[in-house]
């Protein structure tokens, strides 16, 4: 007996995304952080800011934390990204 059975997974895959243009230098630039807001992230990003300013010459640092670490960043934060030269985010615990 032949069983003809169906694929339980979606056939569609996400369209390919494109990376934002890379920078020539970080010196004098504005870097935004999007934190998941978990325990330890405040001090971690404070160190990141310090190192970016001292060792990489970054001019401005903006820290935004997601109100819910298990959800995507809200539109208001995503909307701000355009006004930054670079954005750093992460996944972790």
């Amino acid at each position: 007996m032949i069983f003809r059975v169906l694929d339980p997974t979606p056939e569609k895959t996400a369209p390919l995304g494109q990376k934002a243009p890379r920078l020539d230098t970080l010196r004098g630039k504005t870097v935004g952080f999007i934190s998941n807001g978990k325990e330890g992230t405040k001090a971690f990003f404070a160190h990141m800011e310090d190192v970016l300013r001292k060792d990489y010459g970054v001019a401005n640092v903006v820290l935004r934390a997601k109100p819910n670490y298990s959800a995507p960043a809200p539109a208001a934060i995503v909307g701000e990204i355009k006004s930054w030269d670079a954005v750093i985010s992460g996944i972790g615990d």
Partner: peptide
């Protein structure tokens, strides 16, 4: 933080 930027700065440039 230092380790993240050592690796990450190259990715931004």
């Amino acid at each position: 933080a230092i380790a993240a930027l050592k690796q990450g700065s190259a990715m931004l440039l």
